[in-house]
Design a binder for these strands. Structure first.
Lengths: 174, 174
DNA sequence: GCCATAGTTCAAAAATTATTGAAATGTCTG
DNA sequence: CAGACATTTCAATAATTTTTGAACTATGGC
């Protein structure tokens, strides 16, 4: 598999080197990085996803690391993030030790998973808290306007919490 | 400039001190800070909005600074952000020099403005870029699968760009 | 079991983003 | 229009987030 003499062409510190990114791959990465930014997803994660998205075949760990020129740690954490959000999946050819990664078929579904994981916990956490805030304000004798605002906020949150799962249903495997 | 003796009960460096936050105000701030975090809005901005949201009457600059214990710079920038996104508006009592701030009536509308400002520019920027990426991939003879993926991404972006203004129409004053 | 390979962990370093505050810039008011 | 007051600006600092890499763990093949 590997040339016995020179390992994987590995330079000094374990960072395999591969063909640098093509211009169109760079431009796609820019796109994904910007979009990811809006959702607070780190650059390295977006770059990995982008690379897989534009790849004609699944890529393994070393190929990802090599072509993006990033550290093992980042690749590992990035793939973990993408796995956790069901944005990539691995195929393993039989008799092959390493995993090879490709994007999940539906980007739409991936985004849903991502949004769910960010928004749902926040909504759930908020519910009892907002309740208490409203009570606190009432007890303190806040103005009717404030009471009205806080009540509206409560109802909104409740409705969002109830609607969200309908709009973005959880994937079967969770 | 600085109080030789003592002005608004100001401590050392020009920071007026006011009544500290009530428990329910703190809890509401936590909520807004968390939600803002999802959209990448800084804590200080969320705190200001939260304070105004729970306030029975509009607050002026010094009250905001004092009750939140933050710097003048942060209050100024925070209010600018909120103003720019039409999340607060100022009322000025006649014969009064300072502005007094309150949240815009509709939180929903505020969120729309915020989302627009984040997402629309990204979508617009992406359009020509994605076009080029697709062409680049075609020229490079990428696999049919990749071409299909990139084509889908293009159509998505175009559709989003076209739908977004319908879903979240720009406010009259812009 | 043992070695080699594949991937993970996590503390430290680097990069990014937010906040501060002192100086600058208005702008009302007398 | 002068001077006080309200707000903005922005370079410096602080806080936070991301990335790195070396040590560690896990797994498969012999």
């Amino acid at each position: 598999m590997k040339p016995p003499s020179e390992k994987t062409a590995g330079r000094r510190s374990s960072r395999p080197s591969f063909e640098p990114l093509q211009p169109h791959e760079v431009e796609l990465a820019d796109f994904f990085v910007r979009m990811a930014g809006i959702l607070g997803v780190p650059r390295s994660v977006a770059e990995i996803y982008s690379l897989l998205y534009a790849a004609s075949a699944p890529l393994d760990f070393d190929q990802i690391q090599g072509r993006l020129g990033m550290s093992k740690g980042s690749v590992s954490q990035g793939l973990k993030f993408l796995r956790d959000h069901e944005m990539v999946l691995s195929v393993k050819a039989k008799g092959d030790r390493r995993e090879r990664w490709q994007p999940t078929p539906s980007l739409a579904a991936s985004l849903v998973t991502l949004l769910r994981s960010q928004v749902l916990p926040a909504l759930e956490l908020a519910q009892p808290s907002l309740q208490r805030v409203l009570e606190g304000a009432q007890k303190k004798g806040a103005s009717p306007e404030v009471i009205e605002r806080l009540g509206r906020l409560n109802r909104w949150n409740a409705r969002a919490l109830e609607l969200f799962p309908l709009l973005l249903p959880p994937p079967p495997g969770s």
